[in-house]
Design a protein around this nucleic acid. Structure first.
Lengths: 264, 264
DNA sequence: TTTCTGTGCGTACATTTGACGCAATACTAC
DNA sequence: GTAGTATTGCGTCAAATGTACGCACAGAAA
């Protein structure tokens, strides 16, 4: 099956089984070696990158569709996943439009058929619900989809020019994430099961983009009462072993519930 | 034209000119006599109330569609209007479903045709983007639409059981509004052009649901540097005339920009 | 004049936040 | 053992912020 046929099959499939006009995009954040990362896809046979997305099944909840899409891209389930904005401007898809994209990909015929024929797709654009997710970098198996060749992590500050309005989406998701971080302990899903205090602090510093005082950070986190201390980690020679911590899930979710502000 | 024909025309119209699957709902807040109010519509020939809504034109920005819908309902333009959540659960429309609603309205035939026929509406439900708006109560001319008989203000704490998930929407909008209020001066659009300090304070107290110290409130607001003091208001006998204030629009928008957190 | 109500300070106290000192704790290397 | 290194868990202090409240004064009416 060549690429044109793949695209056609994808279109046929979505016309029948998914809501028209609505899509969703995922800003999937990971954290590794002191760097905040975001998962991107590379469009088939091109150098154009974009955010993973998805569509909503006819008989599927919006949130479930986001869950499913996240699972398909990362192999992970039941993660921190939250709506942050819904994008519905006309120029979403005309700035770097599908038409232009497909043309650049040498798919002029498809482009014409998609956008100038009398199909249901004429004059069409999606309203897209943006979600952001926090995942454990080490647990993820990045998986491309039908229309993409490659799926991999990018450092947040080295993200290239993306298709559509996806750069703006990332900026907005990051803004939301930062704000949220100052309200509630995030990080449950961004770190491995257990971690040291300085790893957690490094995560916070990376997200917030500024450095924090170690001692104040320690006090704050302990005040939340959300961390369980485990055994020490055997480490590199010639130093004291740092303690490992784990989020207390019960308490963690209690905190999210009490202060969460857009899941009613 | 009887009601069935009206509904049919509405459906035909929307199938051709508007995005399928996407709608929007408006939580329009007003303020009058110490009460926070919300604008509701009464469904034709029934006692069922619901939020004003709208659809997005094929060639229309999402935000513009919200603007337009707000204008159609209130006669007002360019107001504080902000997305707060997108609702996409399947049970949105089945809890008090259209089917049930239409049946109760004696429109069994229409109900069957809508939901069990082989039309494009079978198994259909919308993903709806929720916006909330702050408007000047005194400037609004509530206007029903095609499907509704009546449009009027309700006290926020006396809102009846609404159709669909609209009660939940109001709760969520109010939550967002409260949170936003503690970040930035809101009120520009909820009050007449000029107002006294105690009117403004009363607005804050109503939204926040607790009373504030007059002197501290005064100091805070003056610190924002967002109010211009005008002449005194000639008032009721036997007291000093209170000053009138007006928001300094330039400074007001500057504040919104600096701290705004989900309009990127 | 007195009696209202609104206006614009100032003051006092508790809480929160940020910066930082320091001693105790392990662990390795010698 | 001792020296060296990094983690850990306090404590302190000043600045900023939030909250409660006292008070003198300004105008307008009786």
């Amino acid at each position: 099956m060549n690429f044109s046929e793949v695209v056609q099959q994808w279109i046929d499939d979505y016309l029948v089984n998914f809501l028209p006009s609505v899509s969703l995009d995922l800003v999937i954040f990971g954290f590794h070696e002191g760097q905040l990362k975001v998962l991107l896809l590379r469009f088939n046979e091109s150098e154009d990158w974009l955010l993973p997305g998805g569509r909503v099944g006819n008989r599927e909840n919006l949130d479930d569709a986001a869950d499913r899409s996240l699972r398909e891209r990362t192999g992970l389930d039941r993660l921190f996943l939250q709506q942050f904005h819904t994008f519905g401007n006309l120029n979403r898809l005309t700035y770097f439009s599908w038409h232009e994209t497909l043309s650049r990909l040498g798919m002029k015929e498809m482009a014409v058929r998609l956008l100038e024929g009398d199909s249901a797709l004429k004059n069409h654009r999606d309203v897209s619900v943006g979600f952001y997710a926090l995942v454990d970098y080490t647990q993820v198996s990045p998986t491309p989809d039908l229309l993409t060749d490659e799926c991999r992590w990018w450092d947040i500050d080295q993200v290239p020019q993306l298709l559509f309005d996806h750069n703006a989406m990332i900026r907005m998701a990051l803004k939301t994430l930062r704000r949220q971080l100052s309200y509630q302990p995030i990080g449950y899903n961004l770190l491995p099961d257990s971690f040291t205090m300085s790893e957690l602090q490094s995560l916070y510093e990376t997200i917030l983009g500024r450095s924090l005082d170690r001692r104040n950070f320690y006090k704050q986190l302990m005040n939340y009462n959300v961390l369980d201390r485990l055994d020490k980690r055997p480490t590199i020679p010639s130093s004291k072993a740092p303690y490992l911590y784990r989020f207390n899930k019960e308490r963690y979710e209690q905190l999210l519930d009490s202060e969460d502000f857009w899941i009613g």
